[in-house]
């Protein structure tokens, strides 16, 4: 086939099919969040003292932190899927959840006596956290990777890793509604480990799925 023949064939297929990258990502985030919420409610359930907990800044911080991570990571993954796009401004976004977490940890260390640090860090439920966060993140991760296939990442592994951070953020957001451990020390250790696991899985899958 000559190149001009290929061009004729391509031009006959001009109109794009299916949703744009932005629409596909919006669908993935929405459906992923719904799946994680249902998964959480069916397995663990919202903690019984949730109404009282809503008055606690520590409890609320978990949602702010995980939502911030999900938002900036989805934005970065989208940008990474557009060849030639400038990445810097989206990469800087990752500092937002990192700084939030750092600040919360410093405040916690300052406001809680040293003797209580260990108890707060270990918490009561870390094993469940390490299981549940990745589980609730699986559907969001799958949907995000499906959406990102509409894009063209220069590195599938890196984009998959960022998608894993986003999915981990979504999973952790809903786990937080069950999680009885509210200390930022607990979040900084166990949520981070759980989300890092999802990010690693995202990198492994992304390297295969996002190839083009």
């Amino acid at each position: 086939m000559k190149t001009d023949e290929l061009i004729l064939a391509l031009s006959a297929d001009a109109r794009p099919r299916g949703p744009s990258l932005a629409v596909a990502l919006a669908v993935a985030v929405t459906l992923g969040a719904i799946a994680a919420a249902i998964g959480m409610q069916l397995t663990l359930g919202i903690r019984p003292d949730v109404l009282a907990a809503l008055g606690s800044p520590r409890f609320l911080f978990k949602f702010v932190e995980t939502a911030a991570l999900a938002v900036v990571a989805v934005r970065l993954a989208a940008r990474m899927s557009r060849p030639g796009a400038e990445l810097w401004s989206a990469e800087v976004g990752l500092f937002v959840p990192a700084l939030l977490l750092f600040t919360a940890v410093v405040l916690e260390l300052a406001s809680v006596p040293e003797a209580a640090w260990e108890r707060r860090l270990v918490g009561t439920n870390w094993a469940v956290c390490l299981m549940a966060v990745p589980s609730f993140s699986l559907v969001p991760l799958g949907l995000l990777l499906w959406a990102l296939r509409r894009g063209a990442s220069e590195s599938g592994a890196l984009t998959g890793l960022v998608a894993g951070l986003a999915a981990g953020g979504i999973g952790a957001f809903f786990y937080a509604a069950h999680c009885p451990d509210d200390s930022p020390l607990f979040v900084a250790v166990w949520y981070t480990i759980a989300i890092a696991g999802v990010a690693g899985l995202g990198a492994l899958l992304g390297a295969r799925i996002l190839r083009w």
Binding site: T3, D13, R82, P83, G151, W212
Partner: peptide
């Protein structure tokens, strides 16, 4: 050309 075509929504 094929990649430009199939990935044109990434622009």
């Amino acid at each position: 050309l094929l990649a430009l075509h199939l990935k044109r929504q990434s622009w």
